[in-house]
Simulated assay, not measured.
Amino acid sequence: MRMRPTLSWSSTEDLPPGTTDLAPVAGVLEGGGVLVLSGAGISTESGIPDYRGVGGSLSRHTPMTYQDFTAGDQARRRYWARSHLGWRTFRRARPNAGHRAVAAFGRHGLLSGLITQNVDGLHQAAGSDGVVELHGGLDRVVCLSCGALSPRRELARRLAEANAGFRPVAAGINPDGDADLTDEQVGDFQVVPCAACGGILKPDVVFFGEAVPPARVEHCRELVRQAAALLVLGSSLTVMSGLRFVRQAAEAGKPVMIVNRDPTRGDRHAAARVALPLGAALTAVAEGLGVAVDGETAAPD
């Protein structure tokens, strides 16, 4: 549900190559004051696909835009049918080794903050505190009329009651919790209104085509200003909502480290990009720093 980029970025052929050397990442973490910026890639090991990696969902799935969602009832019916089904699977996802390692770094005082582009709540479920959800969270919904926030679990209960016979089999699940369904499978799915005012309900996330709230952006910029270094985990940085913080850190002379298997739009601003699977890489860094990583974590609510 991130904004679709409006400009393409240059070929990766002129970008610095990735490395498998974890020493630079360990070095900045050992110094403390590291701000983490995470993307969809950190959640793939929890069974949630990313948008742009190999087999990413954008190759087969066009996310709902804010403009489409607000334009008509049929678009909202399609969205909520798919999202309701996807939520059943999405909410069962568990934090993986990457999430747990990030939480451990935080407990050991190595991080100054954590910004995530993800809407899955897995960082919080792993035990990370003070997580800034750049694109919001799927665990809550907002009314577009009165602004009331309510838990997603309550909406799920209401939708289940209104659609008792709705049990289609989805072709796949997407990073925004949206399941792949045909129009025939959506059928006459019933959408429920805001319980407070009867208005239109929307997940409290930033859709494609919707801007991140300015106050949230400024808060993130302040976190970059306060940080000693920026560590990007599992993000292609294709959209400006995350790339701007990489550029800000680099322009301020702060070290930027990226752990992502594929080249990213921020590689030219980074001191190094480690091209390794996140779970194994971050666990290895934690072990090298003597940081204990918990093995048991809760599921997001």
Rank of each mutant, 00 (worst) to 15 (best):
R88K: 13
R88N: 11
R88P: 08
R88F: 13
F90G: 13
F90E: 09
F90T: 10
R91M: 12
R92Y: 12
R92M: 15
A93H: 05
A93G: 08
A93I: 00
R94D: 07
R94P: 10
R94T: 08
R94Q: 15
P95A: 07
P95L: 09
P95V: 05
P95F: 02
N96S: 06
N96R: 07
N96F: 01
A97P: 03
A97F: 07
G98L: 00
H99P: 04
R100F: 12
R100G: 13
R100E: 13
R100L: 03
A101D: 00
A101V: 09
A103G: 02
A103C: 06
F105K: 03
F105V: 01
G106E: 12
G106A: 12
G106F: 11
G106W: 09
G106N: 09
R107C: 03
R107T: 10
G109Y: 05
G109D: 06
G109H: 09
G109W: 11
L110A: 09
L111K: 11
L111C: 05
L111Q: 00
S112T: 05
S112K: 04
G113M: 00
G113V: 01
L114N: 06
I115W: 01
I115F: 02
T116V: 15
T116G: 07
Q117T: 02
N118E: 00
V119L: 01
V119D: 03
D120H: 03
D120P: 13
G121S: 09
G121F: 06
L122G: 07
L122H: 05
L122P: 07
H123V: 00
H123D: 02
Q124W: 13
Q124E: 14
A125M: 11
A125I: 00
G127Q: 01
G127Y: 07
S128K: 15
D129Y: 15
D129P: 14
G130T: 13
G130R: 08
G130V: 15
V131P: 00
V132T: 12
E133A: 09
E133Y: 04
E133G: 15
H135E: 09
H135M: 06
G136W: 01
G136E: 01
G136K: 05
G137S: 15
L138V: 10
D139H: 15
D139T: 15
V141I: 14
V141M: 06
V142R: 15
V142H: 12
V142K: 06
C143L: 10
C143Y: 00
L144D: 13
S145D: 10
S145I: 08
G147F: 10
